[in-house]
Each structure stands twice: as structure tokens, then as C-alpha cells.
Design a binder for these strands. Structure first.
Length: 413
DNA sequence: GTCGGGCCTCTGGG
DNA sequence: ACCCAGAGGCCCG
């Protein structure tokens, strides 16, 4: 942490088991957070620049408003501090700090031995309550893509079409552009020049469709139990394996947008509209379903609609109301960027001992009574995570390769 | 309803 | 060197 001075920061006591921003902010749900060399996460959010830092006992946070906002006349009934004071409730909302995460993990583990085995190294993951429009655009970008490139694309989008909020430590912060900002002719061409590929047309068309509708159309699809920041929750109905009526309606409405298929619609439902039962079934989750939950006997390699629904329903029946949240934990555990944790001794420190005797690294027992898999362990050289500028050294780690056995029950045959 | 083929771009691994 | 599969898929015929 070095020269980082936390004197001027606000402090919120919270454990790493209840929130781990280092995992939550880079596991592929939000594509806009940036991490400094000091370990400070920062992003433009709700018209201000938010900075976050976490140690084992506290979350530290601070807001920086644009100069015009700070210079705004203060009414006689409003003191200076109340201008910034909504940062805490804003963060509590955005980081979704309401639920007790330890209890949730226990609940998901109770019916699921696989979750119980995988989750302990991926604690503190929360589903962010992101702006629905931002989530929509981000996940339209995600098709046939990887998290690093998606983040670069979203950054270009904000830099080109979003309002500049300020500059901190030689870094400019732009807020996310509005639908109307992307609904102009020439946007598709510009996005193609910026490297969006075939997604340029999807974003332009979807922006046009949203801009045509009422301003509150997208938020009208929200889970009433999880309203937008500043509004009061209303009961949203009883849970069912297929998902509640409101969720299915929201999903269907989103499918009408360009570049939005079932997976992207579920991402928006889960991370932008507050529908906890939305389970996005992507290539990773499909792999997980085949490897650990006995899916895959069907002949098609790609996920058909029927298979998609079957996988999502299976996970909803297994994990319940917040199935999408549980899915995200397993998704993160399956990401290559986090694969070092599968064999790392400790999860708190970023650095893995580079010169450590590889033979001293413990091999985890990962056999599952349920999963029909064979585990092979290999020693390989992998590069450090690209986005961490201070982590370029090559690390000697071990990875496991799972080989799917296709036979239905005859393990020994 | 289902199935291929094509799609922008970048990267790690054969 | 070179190619190709894969990356949090979707659209079209």
C-alpha cells in the first residue's frame, strides 16, 4: 500500500468474507473499474468519481465531484457535507451490501457439494447493482469476446461519447453515455473504427430502440424488490424454478433488442434489473454444467434454447432465489484469470511466490463423488494477469485439467 | 423449433 | 512461422 494516505477517506467496517472488491470488481460483471498500482479501484459512477480501497477490516471510499457540481450553489437548508453524503447509501446500493453473504454461501452450499467445495476460495463475491443501460451495452459487447477486450471497448465508448467528470492522477474519468448519445447516425461507423466489429451495429440499433421508448422503460423491467437507487422496495412475488413472472417478462422484452440473446438478457436481468433468479448460461457455465452437474449427454455441442432453459432451471432449483448470484461465484472460480487460486496456498495476497519450490505447492484433492471427471495435474508456466501492470512476471503454478468422461454411469467400465 | 455458417478482433497454444 | 480455436453469443436463412 506504500504511500497511500487514507486520512481523507471514509471508512466502512466490513470483512473480506462479506465483500472482496478485488474479486467482485474484476470477475466480468462490470467492465469499467480500474485498479491503480497502489490497489485503489476507481470508476465514474452516478456523476462522480468513486475510489475504493479495502483492507481485511474495512472498505475505504471517497467521492470526487466535477468542479461544476462542487461549485453548485448550496441552499440555506443544505450544508456542504450533505452534498456528498449520499455516497455511502449509493455504495451500499451499488455494492449490494444488504444481504448477509456468509449466510447466502451457507445456503448455496447446503444443497450442493460442488459449490461447497469450490466456493471457499472465492468468498466475498457480490452481484453489483449496476445501471441497467450500462449493463446492457457492456454485455452486448461481450459476445464472442473476452473480459479484457470488453473492458477496453467500454472504455473507448465512454471516452468517445460520455461526459468528462474529472481527472485524477493523470487519468480522465468519463461517465457512461446515455442512449440518445449513441442513437445518432455515424455512431455505428465510429464504433467500427474503434474496433467493436459486428457489435457496432447492435449497440447503435439498440440505442435507437431504447431512445425511442419512454425514459423509464428499462427501469420499468426491474425487480420491484430491487428498485433503482433511492426508491423503496416492493414485494416481487414468490420464487419458482422457472423464474417469476416479472423476470420472464423482462427477459422477453430484452430479447427484442438487437444483439441481445438469452444469455445477454439474463446478464442484464441479473446485474442491471435485480432479478436474482436470472442464470446466464454462457460457455463457462455450460462447461461447469457438463463437468460438475451431469449435463452434456445431448449431441449438440452448442447450447440450444431447450438446453439453456434446462441448465438455468436446474441451477434455480438447486440454489433458489439468488441462483444467478451463486452461478457468478462458480463462474469466477472457472475463470482463467483466477486459476492460480485453485492451487494457491493463501488467497489474500496477490503475489504468488515466484521462486518458490514448485514441489512445495500443495495439490488440492479435488475429486468429486458426483462429478464424472478425471483430474490431471500439470506443471505449466503461465503469465501474470495482464491488467495488473505490476504483475508481469511469469509465475510457476500448477493447473488442473479436467477431462470429461462421457459414459453415463459406468465409471469403471 | 432446430441447425449451420458467419461475424470483428486478439491471443495463447499447437 | 503459421494457423486455429476460443473468448461470459447472436443473427440470419
Amino acid at each position: 500500500m506504500g504511500a497511500l494516505n487514507l486520512q481523507e477517506w471514509n471508512k466502512l467496517p466490513i470483512s473480506l468474507a462479506e465483500l472482496c472488491i478485488n474479486t467482485t470488481l474484476r470477475c466480468g460483471q462490470s467492465f469499467r473499474w480500474r485498479k491503480s498500482e497502489e490497489g485503489v479501484w476507481s470508476m465514474a459512477l452516478h456523476g462522480r468519481i468513486i475510489r475504493l480501497y479495502q483492507d481485511p477490516d474495512n472498505l475505504y471510499y471517497r467521492s470526487t465531484f466535477p468542479t461544476t457540481e462542487i461549485a453548485r450553489p448550496i441552499s440555506s437548508t443544505t450544508n456542504a457535507s450533505s452534498l456528498q453524503d449520499d455516497t455511502l447509501p449509493l455504495l451500499q446500493h451499488y455494492l449490494n451490501l444488504g444481504p448477509n453473504l456468509t449466510d447466502l454461501y451457507a445456503h448455496w452450499s447446503a444443497n450442493d457439494a460442488n459449490f461447497k467445495r469450490k466456493a471457499p476460495k472465492f468468498t466475498g463475491i457480490r452481484i453489483l447493482k449496476q445501471d441497467a443501460w450500462e449493463a446492457l451495452v457492456g454485455f452486448i459487447c461481450s459476445s464472442n469476446n473476452n473480459i479484457i477486450r470488453i473492458s477496453q471497448m467500454v472504455d473507448k465508448l465512454c471516452r468517445t461519447y460520455g461526459p468528462l467528470l474529472g481527472r485524477i492522477d493523470d487519468h480522465d474519468y468519463y461517465d457512461f453515455p446515455k442512449p440518445a448519445d449513441l442513437a445518432n447516425s455515424g455512431v455505428e461507423q465510429k464504433l467500427r473504427e474503434l474496433g467493436f466489429g459486428y457489435r457496432a451495429k447492435y449497440i447503435y440499433k439498440t440505442a435507437c430502440m431504447i431512445a425511442e421508448k419512454d425514459d423509464d422503460w428499462l427501469d420499468g423491467l426491474r425487480n420491484p424488490e430491487s428498485p433503482a437507487f433511492g426508491k423503496d422496495p416492493v414485494p416481487g412475488g414468490a420464487f419458482v424454478d422457472e423464474g417469476r413472472e416479472g423476470y420472464r417478462l423482462a427477459h422477453e422484452e430484452l430479447l427484442a433488442l438487437q444483439g441481445v440473446g438469452p444469455k445477454v438478457a439474463d446478464c442484464v436481468c441479473l446485474m442491471g434489473l435485480g432479478w436474482g433468479e436470472a442464470v446466464p448460461v454462457d460457455t463457462h457455465v455450460w462447461q461447469i454444467a457438463q463437468r460438475d452437474y451431469k449435463f452434456g449427454k445431448s449431441k449438440h455441442t452448442s447450447v440450444t434454447k431447450a438446453t439453456y432453459d434446462a441448465v438455468a432451471n436446474k441451477f434455480r432449483s438447486l440454489w433458489g432465489q439468488e441462483a444467478g448470484w451463486a452461478q457468478s461465484v462458480l463462474f469466477t472460480a472457472n475463470l482463467k484469470a483466477f486459476s492460480e487460486r485453485l492451487v494457491a496456498k493463501t488467497e489474500v495476497k496477490e503475489e504468488i511466490a515466484i521462486k518458490e519450490d514448485p514441489d512445495a505447492v500443495k495439490i488440492e484433492e479435488d475429486e468429486s463423488a458426483e462429478a464424472e471427471t478425471i483430474i490431471k495435474t500439470d506443471k505449466v508456466l503461465v503469465k501474470g494477469i495482464k491488467r495488473e501492470a505490476d504483475d508481469k512476471d511469469q509465475m510457476l503454478v500448477e493447473t488442473k485439467h479436467n477431462v470429461i468422461r462421457k459414459s453415463k454411469r459406468a465409471k469403471k467400465a
